[in-house]
């Protein structure tokens, strides 16, 4: 999610891999001069999807703050300037995707998920997050934007900024912080959804929340359908409007085997279907 766009941007040099966790590594680039897009990141992918039979499409794109935070900055005067330079490039990319979308004749709203796992890494930099995210979404009022954040130490600092961000909803990681052990059904890992609901009460345009988090992407244990269902029910009870609750895994399932990833997704879908039948 980082290297794919970074390798298509001029101004970034790669010196090797750095650790993310355990024995997992990623190629972290160094920004050594002004950055500019050399070639599109996702246009081919979107074109392929539009030509296929896929009915609903949401395009993920790595966000400007994460691109900045995951790069070594050897050139820009400060982190805000680098994040805004990335935001400029990402805005250009989304605009081109949106043009392609419109030309395809699709009737539904174009959905873009801005992936920002780094969002709350530096609590003092939330202004940079807000500025750069809003720059990404400029001139794109017809697009539905969601923001994916994961492994945050404290989502409340993100929720506090909801009113300022041009984002329609949030896809978050929660399962990782919720115990799986029998007898731990209090769903403590999801408790700060209450704060999301409080902040959402204060805005006229309600945001949705993807409770992320119905499957932990860093363990092979496949969460049972019943547990996932309980987590969704809890989120609905807190947010108090099922239309504002979406369901997604904590993060990408790349770190799991295909078999484990498939089973996690299957259980998630089974839990959603069962609940939907009950609610609707």
């Amino acid at each position: 999610m980082y290297e794919h766009p970074a390798s298509r941007i001029d101004g970034i040099e790669f010196y090797g891999l750095v650790r993310s966790f355990d024995n997992r590594y990623y190629r972290k680039g160094s920004v050594v001069r002004d950055i500019r897009r050399k070639e599109p990141f996702h246009i081919d992918e979107l074109r392929f999807l539009l030509d296929s039979a896929v009915e609903r499409i949401k395009m993920p794109i790595t966000g400007p703050y994460t691109m900045m935070d995951w790069s070594f900055n050897e050139h820009y005067s400060d982190r805000h300037s680098l994040a805004m330079a990335y935001a400029e490039i990402i805005n250009q990319e989304i605009k081109e995707m949106y043009e392609l979308w419109k030309r395809s004749g699709r009737k539904e709203r174009f959905e873009v998920q801005i992936d920002e796992p780094a969002t709350t890494t530096h609590p003092s930099e939330m202004d940079i997050v807000v500025d750069s995210i809003n720059r990404c979404t400029e001139g794109l009022s017809g697009v539905e934007f969601s923001l994916h954040v994961c492994y945050s130490k404290d989502y409340r600092i993100l929720y506090d900024r909801i009113p300022e961000m041009n984002i329609d909803g949030y896809n978050l990681e929660y399962a990782n912080r919720d115990p799986l052990a029998p007898g731990s059904e209090r769903l403590g890992g999801y408790s700060d959804l209450k704060y999301f609901a409080q902040v959402n009460e204060t805005v006229s345009k309600k945001r949705f929340v993807g409770i992320g988090g119905v499957t932990d992407v860093h363990i092979d244990t496949v969460e049972p359908v019943d547990l996932i269902r309980k987590r969704i029910e809890y989120a609905i009870s807190v947010v108090d409007d099922p239309r504002l609750v979406k369901v997604n895994p904590d993060c990408g399932l790349r770190t799991r085997s295909r078999e484990v990833g498939f089973q996690k997704l299957k259980n998630m879908v089974d839990a959603v279907r069962a609940l939907r039948e009950e609610i609707l």
Binding site: F21, W70, A118, T121, Y151, K153, N176, R177, G189
Partner: peptide
């Protein structure tokens, strides 16, 4: 415990 971000970095423990 959960996989946790190590301080203000992009590494986890």
């Amino acid at each position: 415990g959960p996989l946790t971000r190590y301080l203000e970095t992009n590494t986890f423990y």
